[in-house]
C-alpha cells in the first residue's frame, strides 16, 4: 500500500462520478421513499399514511416467505459457488497459451445476457426438448421442473452455479496469479504439503478478491430476477418466486405501489446492512492482526 497524500482537492476528480451516480441514484431513492409513505390512487390523489405500509409489510406472510426463500437461496449459492470457484481457479493453468484459452472459455457464461441464460436453461432442462431434462428422466429420476417445486428450485440453483461460478473463479485466478513464484519455491523447500500451501500461501492471498466476490454474489443473488423469471416464471406455486419477483408482482401486477415501495426499502436496507456488516467485519479482522 502506498503512502497517500491528504488533499481534499481530490474531490474535484471524484465529482463527475459523484454527479453521475447521484443523478441516477438519489432521485429514484427519494421517489421510492415518497411512495412508501403514501397511499396512491392515481397521479393526483395520494394520502399520507406514515409508517402504515412498513407495519403491514412486516406482517405480510407472502413477502416474509419469499424473504426466507431468498436468504436460503443466497446462502446455497455462496456455499456452492465460493468453494467451487476457488477449486476451478486452482486448476486453471497459469502459463502459456492454455492460460488465455481457459480464461476465455471460463468467462463466457458471464457475457451472456441474463434472459438468454434463462432461455438456455429452459431449453436445456425441459423434459421434452431439453438434453438435461431428457437425460435425467432417462436414468430413471422423475424430473420436471415445471411441475415439481424441488426440481424447479434445484434447476434455478444449478443455473446460478453455471452462470456465476466463473466470476468467483476469475477473481480467485487473478488473486492466485499475483502470488510471486518465490512463495511456492520457498514452500517446496520448507516441505509444505499441498494443503499447507493452500492454507498458508494461497488462501491468505485470496482474501481480498474473495471479499469482493462474496459481496457481489450476495448482492446479485439476493436480487435475482431475470433468470428465474424466464426459466420458471416463479413457479410452480411460489417455489422459485424470489423477492424481486414478489415485489414486481405487487408493484406492477396489483399496482400496490406504496406497500411495494416500503418493502423495497426494507429489502434495500437488509442488503446494505449485511454488506456493511461483512465489510466492517473484514476490515476489523484485518486491523486486529
Amino acid at each position: 500500500m502506498q503512502r497517500k497524500v491528504r488533499d481534499n482537492k481530490a474531490w474535484f476528480l471524484v465529482l463527475p462520478v459523484f454527479i453521475l451516480v447521484a443523478f441516477s441514484a438519489i432521485v429514484p431513492i427519494m421517489t421510492v421513499v415518497n411512495y412508501s409513505v403514501q397511499d396512491i390512487f392515481d397521479q393526483n390523489t395520494a394520502y399520507f399514511v406514515g409508517a402504515e405500509w412498513y407495519r403491514e409489510m412486516l406482517r405480510n406472510p407472502a413477502l416474509l416467505d419469499s424473504l426466507g426463500r431468498q436468504f436460503f437461496f443466497s446462502f446455497s449459492v455462496l456455499a456452492i459457488e465460493v468453494p467451487l470457484g476457488i477449486l476451478i481457479a486452482l486448476v486453471m493453468p497459469t502459463k502459456g497459451r492454455m492460460a488465455a484459452v481457459s480464461l476465455i472459455l471460463v468467462a463466457i457464461p458471464l457475457l451472456i445476457p441474463w434472459n438468454v441464460v434463462g432461455t438456455i436453461w429452459q431449453i436445456f432442462s425441459r423434459a421434452d426438448i431439453g438434453l438435461f431434462g431428457y437425460a435425467v428422466n432417462a436414468v430413471g429420476i422423475d424430473y420436471n421442473y415445471t411441475s415439481d417445486p424441488t426440481a424447479a428450485w434445484l434447476t434455478v440453483l444449478l443455473m446460478d452455479v453455471w452462470h456465476w461460478t466463473p466470476l468467483i473463479a476469475l477473481l480467485c485466478y487473478s488473486g492466485l496469479r499475483a502470488i510471486p513464484e518465490a512463495f511456492y519455491q520457498a514452500a517446496r523447500i520448507d516441505r509444505a504439503s499441498k494443503w499447507a500451501i493452500f492454507r498458508h500461501i494461497q488462501l491468505p492471498r485470496l482474501k481480498s478478491v474473495l471479499v469482493i466476490g462474496v459481496l457481489l454474489r450476495f448482492m446479485d443473488s439476493f436480487m435475482i430476477y431475470t433468470e428465474p423469471f424466464v426459466l420458471t416464471g416463479g413457479g410452480p406455486g411460489n417455489s422459485t418466486t424470489f423477492l424481486s419477483q414478489a415485489l414486481t408482482q405487487m408493484a406492477i401486477g396489483q399496482f400496490d405501489i406504496g406497500p411495494a415501495a416500503a418493502f423495497s426499502l426494507i429489502y434495500y436496507l437488509i442488503v446494505l446492512l449485511v454488506c456493511y456488516a461483512f465489510f466492517t467485519a473484514i476490515n476489523q479482522l484485518d486491523k486486529a492482526k
Binding site: 441514484a25 421510492v32 436480487m223 423477492l243 424481486s244 415485489l247 414486481t248 408493484a251 423495497s264 434495500y268
Partner: peptide
Amino acid sequence: RMAPPAVF
C-alpha cells in the same frame, strides 16, 4: 448496486 430493481 444493492437497490432491488423491481420497485426502483
